[in-house]
Simulated assay, not measured.
Amino acid sequence: MKRKCPKVKSLLLRLLLFRQTRPVFTEEEKTEFTRLYDRIIQDGGIAPYDSSYPKFRFLQYLSVTKPLLFHGSNYQGIEEFEPRRQTLFDGTYTDAVFSSADGIWPLFYAVLDRSGLTGNIRNGCIVSRRGERFYFFSLSVESEDRYPWTEGMIYVLPRDSFRQASEGKLYFDEWVSEKPVKPLFRLKVSPEDFVFLSRTTWHRSTEPLFKTYLLYKWRSKFGKRK
Protein backbone atom coordinates (compact mmCIF):
# COMPACT_ATOMS: atom_id res chain seq x y z
CA MET A 1 0.00 0.00 0.00
CA LYS A 2 2.80 2.42 0.82
CA ARG A 3 4.24 2.08 -2.66
CA LYS A 4 0.91 3.06 -4.20
CA CYS A 5 0.40 6.16 -2.06
CA PRO A 6 2.47 8.56 -4.22
CA LYS A 7 0.59 7.40 -7.35
CA VAL A 8 -2.75 7.89 -5.61
CA LYS A 9 -1.71 11.35 -4.40
CA SER A 10 -0.49 12.29 -7.88
CA LEU A 11 -3.79 11.21 -9.41
CA LEU A 12 -5.69 13.20 -6.79
CA LEU A 13 -3.62 16.29 -7.54
CA ARG A 14 -4.34 15.91 -11.26
CA LEU A 15 -8.04 15.91 -10.50
CA LEU A 16 -8.01 18.86 -8.09
CA LEU A 17 -5.25 21.21 -9.28
CA PHE A 18 -3.84 22.54 -12.55
CA ARG A 19 -1.00 20.44 -13.89
CA GLN A 20 1.96 21.30 -16.08
CA THR A 21 4.58 18.85 -17.28
CA ARG A 22 8.31 19.50 -17.50
CA PRO A 23 8.77 22.44 -19.91
CA VAL A 24 10.13 21.74 -23.38
CA PHE A 25 11.68 24.56 -25.40
CA THR A 26 11.94 25.07 -29.14
CA GLU A 27 15.30 25.87 -30.72
CA GLU A 28 14.04 29.40 -31.34
CA GLU A 29 13.23 29.84 -27.66
CA LYS A 30 16.61 28.48 -26.60
CA THR A 31 18.43 30.90 -28.89
CA GLU A 32 16.32 33.84 -27.78
CA PHE A 33 16.58 33.11 -24.05
CA THR A 34 20.34 32.49 -24.25
CA ARG A 35 20.74 35.86 -25.96
CA LEU A 36 18.64 37.57 -23.30
CA TYR A 37 20.44 35.95 -20.40
CA ASP A 38 23.93 36.70 -21.73
CA ARG A 39 23.04 40.36 -22.12
CA ILE A 40 21.20 40.68 -18.82
CA ILE A 41 23.79 38.92 -16.65
CA GLN A 42 26.44 41.38 -17.82
CA ASP A 43 24.39 44.47 -17.09
CA GLY A 44 22.60 43.40 -13.88
CA GLY A 45 19.99 45.71 -12.40
CA ILE A 46 16.51 45.70 -13.94
CA ALA A 47 16.52 43.44 -16.99
CA PRO A 48 15.17 44.99 -20.21
CA TYR A 49 12.84 42.37 -21.67
CA ASP A 50 12.39 42.71 -25.42
CA SER A 51 11.30 39.16 -26.28
CA SER A 52 7.91 38.21 -27.70
CA TYR A 53 7.92 35.05 -25.59
CA PRO A 54 6.10 35.17 -22.23
CA LYS A 55 8.26 36.06 -19.26
CA PHE A 56 7.32 32.89 -17.39
CA ARG A 57 8.85 30.86 -20.24
CA PHE A 58 12.11 32.77 -19.83
CA LEU A 59 12.07 32.06 -16.08
CA GLN A 60 11.34 28.39 -16.70
CA TYR A 61 14.25 28.21 -19.13
CA LEU A 62 16.60 29.77 -16.58
CA SER A 63 15.38 27.35 -13.92
CA VAL A 64 16.28 24.25 -15.95
CA THR A 65 19.51 25.55 -17.50
CA LYS A 66 21.09 27.77 -14.82
CA PRO A 67 21.70 27.45 -11.04
CA LEU A 68 19.12 30.16 -10.31
CA LEU A 69 16.06 30.70 -8.13
CA PHE A 70 13.31 33.33 -8.09
CA HIS A 71 11.66 35.56 -5.50
CA GLY A 72 8.54 37.61 -6.28
CA SER A 73 7.77 40.87 -4.48
CA ASN A 74 5.80 44.12 -4.84
CA TYR A 75 8.92 45.96 -3.65
CA GLN A 76 10.99 46.97 -6.65
CA GLY A 77 14.26 48.19 -5.15
CA ILE A 78 15.57 45.37 -2.94
CA GLU A 79 19.37 45.29 -3.00
CA GLU A 80 19.82 42.37 -0.61
CA PHE A 81 17.48 39.87 1.04
CA GLU A 82 17.94 39.27 4.76
CA PRO A 83 16.71 36.12 6.54
CA ARG A 84 13.50 36.75 8.48
CA ARG A 85 10.97 34.73 10.45
CA GLN A 86 8.54 33.00 8.07
CA THR A 87 6.56 29.79 7.87
CA LEU A 88 7.14 26.85 5.56
CA PHE A 89 4.29 25.13 3.72
CA ASP A 90 3.68 22.89 6.74
CA GLY A 91 3.50 25.79 9.21
CA THR A 92 7.01 25.31 10.60
CA TYR A 93 8.78 28.56 11.48
CA THR A 94 12.20 29.31 10.04
CA ASP A 95 14.50 32.33 9.76
CA ALA A 96 15.45 32.40 6.11
CA VAL A 97 15.25 33.98 2.68
CA PHE A 98 12.59 32.24 0.60
CA SER A 99 12.69 31.49 -3.13
CA SER A 100 11.49 28.96 -5.68
CA ALA A 101 12.88 27.14 -8.70
CA ASP A 102 9.51 27.46 -10.42
CA GLY A 103 8.96 29.97 -13.21
CA ILE A 104 5.29 30.63 -12.40
CA TRP A 105 4.69 30.51 -8.65
CA PRO A 106 6.88 33.56 -7.77
CA LEU A 107 4.89 35.64 -10.27
CA PHE A 108 1.88 35.29 -7.96
CA TYR A 109 3.77 36.95 -5.11
CA ALA A 110 5.20 39.60 -7.42
CA VAL A 111 1.83 40.85 -8.71
CA LEU A 112 -0.45 40.15 -5.73
CA ASP A 113 -1.11 43.41 -3.87
CA ARG A 114 -1.43 42.16 -0.30
CA SER A 115 -1.87 45.61 1.21
CA GLY A 116 -5.45 45.83 2.36
CA LEU A 117 -6.22 42.14 1.82
CA THR A 118 -8.08 40.46 4.67
CA GLY A 119 -8.45 36.82 5.56
CA ASN A 120 -5.84 34.44 4.21
CA ILE A 121 -4.08 33.44 0.99
CA ARG A 122 -3.89 29.82 -0.13
CA ASN A 123 -1.52 28.89 -2.92
CA GLY A 124 1.27 26.57 -3.87
CA CYS A 125 3.36 24.71 -6.40
CA ILE A 126 3.65 20.99 -5.69
CA VAL A 127 6.28 19.07 -7.65
CA SER A 128 6.50 15.37 -8.42
CA ARG A 129 9.67 13.40 -9.06
CA ARG A 130 8.54 13.05 -12.69
CA GLY A 131 8.70 16.80 -13.13
CA GLU A 132 4.96 17.45 -12.98
CA ARG A 133 3.93 20.68 -11.30
CA PHE A 134 0.55 21.23 -9.67
CA TYR A 135 -0.69 24.77 -9.01
CA PHE A 136 -3.46 26.36 -6.96
CA PHE A 137 -4.20 30.01 -6.12
CA SER A 138 -7.07 31.22 -3.94
CA LEU A 139 -7.82 34.44 -2.02
CA SER A 140 -10.24 35.09 0.83
CA VAL A 141 -13.63 36.21 -0.42
CA GLU A 142 -13.63 38.93 2.26
CA SER A 143 -11.32 40.89 -0.05
CA GLU A 144 -13.31 40.42 -3.25
CA ASP A 145 -14.44 44.07 -3.40
CA ARG A 146 -10.92 45.35 -4.12
CA TYR A 147 -8.62 44.75 -7.08
CA PRO A 148 -5.82 42.58 -5.66
CA TRP A 149 -3.23 42.92 -8.44
CA THR A 150 -0.34 45.30 -9.08
CA GLU A 151 3.00 45.54 -10.85
CA GLY A 152 5.92 43.82 -9.17
CA MET A 153 9.39 42.40 -9.50
CA ILE A 154 10.95 38.98 -9.95
CA TYR A 155 14.36 38.84 -8.29
CA VAL A 156 16.75 36.30 -9.83
CA LEU A 157 18.98 34.80 -7.13
CA PRO A 158 22.08 32.57 -7.15
CA ARG A 159 21.25 29.08 -5.90
CA ASP A 160 24.48 28.31 -4.03
CA SER A 161 23.39 29.23 -0.48
CA PHE A 162 19.89 27.74 -0.79
CA ARG A 163 18.55 24.30 0.05
CA GLN A 164 15.20 22.71 -0.66
CA ALA A 165 12.87 23.07 2.30
CA SER A 166 11.37 19.62 1.75
CA GLU A 167 12.01 16.45 -0.20
CA GLY A 168 10.02 13.44 -1.30
CA LYS A 169 8.13 12.12 -4.28
CA LEU A 170 5.78 15.10 -3.90
CA TYR A 171 7.02 18.36 -2.40
CA PHE A 172 6.39 22.11 -2.35
CA ASP A 173 8.92 24.02 -4.44
CA GLU A 174 10.24 26.09 -1.54
CA TRP A 175 13.94 26.90 -1.17
CA VAL A 176 15.46 28.60 1.87
CA SER A 177 18.76 30.31 2.67
CA GLU A 178 19.86 31.17 6.19
CA LYS A 179 22.33 33.69 4.72
CA PRO A 180 21.71 37.12 3.15
CA VAL A 181 21.35 36.95 -0.63
CA LYS A 182 22.01 39.62 -3.26
CA PRO A 183 19.99 39.38 -6.51
CA LEU A 184 21.87 38.89 -9.77
CA PHE A 185 19.22 40.90 -11.61
CA ARG A 186 15.49 41.61 -11.54
CA LEU A 187 12.64 41.45 -14.00
CA LYS A 188 9.67 43.81 -13.85
CA VAL A 189 6.31 42.05 -14.23
CA SER A 190 2.63 42.96 -14.41
CA PRO A 191 -0.55 41.00 -13.63
CA GLU A 192 -0.83 39.97 -17.29
CA ASP A 193 2.44 38.03 -16.92
CA PHE A 194 0.87 35.74 -14.33
CA VAL A 195 -0.63 32.91 -16.38
CA PHE A 196 -2.99 31.80 -13.60
CA LEU A 197 -4.53 35.24 -13.15
CA SER A 198 -7.92 34.09 -14.46
CA ARG A 199 -7.63 30.86 -12.47
CA THR A 200 -7.19 32.53 -9.10
CA THR A 201 -10.30 31.74 -7.08
CA TRP A 202 -11.96 32.88 -3.87
CA HIS A 203 -12.69 31.07 -0.59
CA ARG A 204 -14.03 32.02 2.82
CA SER A 205 -11.18 32.48 5.30
CA THR A 206 -12.88 30.08 7.73
CA GLU A 207 -13.26 27.39 5.08
CA PRO A 208 -11.32 24.14 5.77
CA LEU A 209 -8.24 23.84 3.59
CA PHE A 210 -9.33 20.51 2.10
CA LYS A 211 -12.53 22.17 0.83
CA THR A 212 -10.50 24.86 -0.94
CA TYR A 213 -8.51 22.11 -2.67
CA LEU A 214 -11.66 20.14 -3.47
CA LEU A 215 -13.50 23.07 -5.08
CA TYR A 216 -10.55 24.88 -6.65
CA LYS A 217 -10.93 23.69 -10.27
CA TRP A 218 -14.71 23.94 -10.16
CA ARG A 219 -14.54 27.50 -8.86
CA SER A 220 -11.94 28.39 -11.48
CA LYS A 221 -14.02 26.98 -14.31
CA PHE A 222 -17.35 28.46 -13.35
CA GLY A 223 -16.18 31.67 -11.67
CA LYS A 224 -17.68 30.71 -8.33
CA ARG A 225 -16.36 32.77 -5.44
CA LYS A 226 -17.87 30.90 -2.46
Rank of each mutant, 00 (worst) to 15 (best):
F25R: 11
N74C: 06
G103E: 03
R57D: 01
Y171P: 00
I154Y: 06
R22D: 12
G103L: 05
P23S: 12
S138I: 02
D113T: 00
T92W: 00
G124R: 08
K2Y: 09
Q164R: 10
L170S: 01
N74S: 11
I40V: 15
R3V: 10
P148D: 06
G45S: 03
K226F: 15
R199N: 13
R225K: 15
K9I: 15
L112R: 09
G45H: 01
P183G: 05
L12N: 09
Y49S: 03
T65D: 03
L62P: 05
S198Q: 10
K7S: 10
F136R: 06
F194R: 02
V97D: 01
S128Q: 12
E167P: 00
T31S: 15
P148F: 06
S140Q: 10
S220A: 15
G223K: 06
D95N: 13
K2E: 12
R85I: 08
L16A: 13
S100K: 04
F136D: 09
K211E: 15
E28H: 11
H203W: 11
D145R: 07
K179L: 05
V64R: 10
D38S: 15
Y61M: 02
Q86E: 04
K211R: 14
S205T: 14
P83Y: 02
E27G: 03
C125N: 14
V141N: 12
L12K: 08
L62D: 05
L117E: 07
Y216R: 09
T201R: 04
F18H: 13
R225S: 14
G119P: 05
I40M: 13
S205E: 14
R186A: 14
G103S: 05
D160W: 02
Y93Q: 08
G223N: 12
Q42A: 14
